[in-house]
Design a protein around this nucleic acid. Structure first.
Lengths: 340, 340
DNA sequence: CTGTTAGCGCGTTCAT
DNA sequence: ATGAACGCGCTAACAG
């Protein structure tokens, strides 16, 4: 272990140099005190010595760390990367630092994480856990002593705030759009039912199909994972069906890249051989030839909104719990769907 | 501010319940002590009371935070996201938590960041700063009291370790490949000269051209920014030249997406109208139709390597400074370049 | 091996 | 408005 030497310059040194008591230095630095004279002396000493308060010692007394934990399933997923970027910015501007934890969707990691984070190093938490059906994790979240904001999750935990995407409206628009183009055999790729985005998209898909009098064919609905590998495999399976779909809705960006990969590999053309819509506007969709129609949302704004929600409760402007933001999704029509 | 209540259960409570002294509890928990009897009593009390040590208090004494700061220019850039993912994993497995800071390439933010981080909340730092020519930032880095690993940067700071990519070999291969296909007018899009990746790629480009007796046309070399917007604009400018390039090498993934965007917008075909090579293997390149030839590298491994370097010095296995890893880059030939 | 004592550096009482 | 004393929770040093 690195054994670092003692703090080079402490508040006591500043006090001595300024000819005042340590407590006075503390007060000046925290703005509780005012005589211009002593202020000047203290600040001069601070400057001369290059003093900067020890954040650990400060935290021990104040019981605040000015740190917020953010847990995501995979920071390399552009979705989470954008959320992180938005949250980090707002938190930094609010004087907080971000502690990042990547769970890889591993429950054991998430449990360990929550245990660690409960031992005080953070003032608040932004969570987008990997499995809403994990009751143990839910219990841990419920037992946390710090404010929590759930990111697009719907856990059975009462006192948390939530920042959500309104997946349903965008997916409904997408399905309606495909139906209007004459598609009836529409394939659906979705994440696990234990995660809100997957449930909402799936539900919106079923709803809109039925509203138009089209009963979704169970053989065309493939859910269970958000991975690109799942997208690759299930798209291939769908295409191998005796009656393959004429259109495909990928309910997740990695499912979308997986679908694209299979489509490429088989030499199929979009939209002639298959129409495609992807949820979340990623580079690979926008820059595709032809550009892919997507269900877009401002993911970075979601991160910002979540961070703002958390800041409000951490700074006492609002009690924790019950807070809720929901950001819209909308269909961006490009050129990946053909009229039947 | 949130004023959190005092710690619910402390080491003293455990000591009392176990009938031992607080220091004994501490020793048991840190493995310094051993009588099976006392161990059992202490652990039972810990279990019964649900005690978990306060990390802040522990840090104040031990002068370790078990936290590492990672600064990147933009976490939403898939490159940095992958580095982060790799680093986080290794650090977590090593018992460290990651503090993430996004600088947006803003020097003021970076300076502020280094000041904050110097006030002790981290045991080590992983930095990929935005401008190697910023002497003030360099001075700050040099003054840090914790071990530092530079990520693909070459600062004039002696005692730091570095984790680098060998951009040159990959770019040389790419240029040689284009020359072998008969291209002579090769455009080059590059980042700023104040960042190692930009310098190395540019240098490799010039070198290989000259080795083959082709003097690079200054009009075809556009460097200065790594942004997609710069890629969009400069690609357009290159195409508007009286004698436009027959091939384009984009020295950065965002420059590559920018180039793709302009190519799409103008309705040009790859590789018939323009051959293209992109540095870094992103989804948009791999999934493009036709798939784009890239200079690939394992960015996640770079993050892992940097984290391992840092762990070595933080745990005292190696003195800080002089450590260096360099990971390879290689050309992945796909279908975006035509023979002239 | 264990208990006692003494801080780590800061903020916050309580006096003055 | 300022100084003195104390304590946040834990671990290292010193005895025994």
């Amino acid at each position: 272990m690195v054994r670092r030497e003692r703090k080079e310059v402490t508040i006591a040194d500043v006090a001595q140099r300024a000819g005042v008591a340590p407590s006075t230095v503390s007060r000046v630095l925290n703005g509780h005190s005012g005589t211009p004279e002593t202020r000047g002396a203290v600040l001069a000493a601070v400057e001369a010595l290059g003093f900067s308060p020890d954040s650990i010692a400060r935290s021990l007394r104040s019981r605040e760390t000015r740190t917020v934990g953010l847990q995501v399933i995979d920071i390399a997923n552009p979705l989470f990367a954008a959320v992180t970027r938005g949250a980090e910015r707002v938190l930094r501007q609010g004087g907080y630092t971000l502690l990042l934890a990547n769970s890889d969707g591993d429950r054991a990691v998430e449990r360990h994480l929550l245990t660690t984070l409960a031992s005080r190093p953070v003032d608040g938490l932004l969570l987008s856990l990997g499995d809403e059906s994990d009751t143990e994790v839910a219990a841990q979240v419920g037992a946390l002593r710090v404010p929590v904001v759930l990111l697009d999750r719907n856990f059975a935990v009462p006192a948390t705030d939530v920042a959500l995407s309104d997946h349903r409206s965008g997916v409904r628009d997408a399905v309606r759009y495909l139906l209007d183009l004459g598609h009836r055999r529409i394939g659906f790729l979705g994440g696990p039912d234990t995660l809100r985005p997957g449930r909402e998209r799936r539900r919106a898909f079923d709803e809109m199909m039925r509203e138009r009098g089209v009963e979704p064919d169970p053989a065309l609905v493939r859910t269970g994972s958000l991975s690109a590998a799942f997208g690759v495999r299930e798209t291939a399976a769908l295409l191998d069906l005796p009656e393959p779909p004429t259109a495909l809705l990928a309910g997740g960006n990695q499912l979308g890249t997986g679908a694209l990969e299979t489509i490429r590999r088989r030499g199929l053309r979009i939209p002639d051989d298959l129409s495609l819509v992807i949820c979340d506007d990623i580079d690979a969709a926008r820059l595709n030839d032809p550009p892919i129609t997507v269900v877009a949302r401002d993911v970075e704004a979601l991160g910002r909104a979540a961070a703002e929600l958390l800041l409000e409760t951490m700074t006492g402007r609002r009690p924790s719990g019950g807070g809720r933001v929901e950001l819209g999704t909308h269909l961006v029509v490009r050129a990946s769907c053909r009229r039947l």
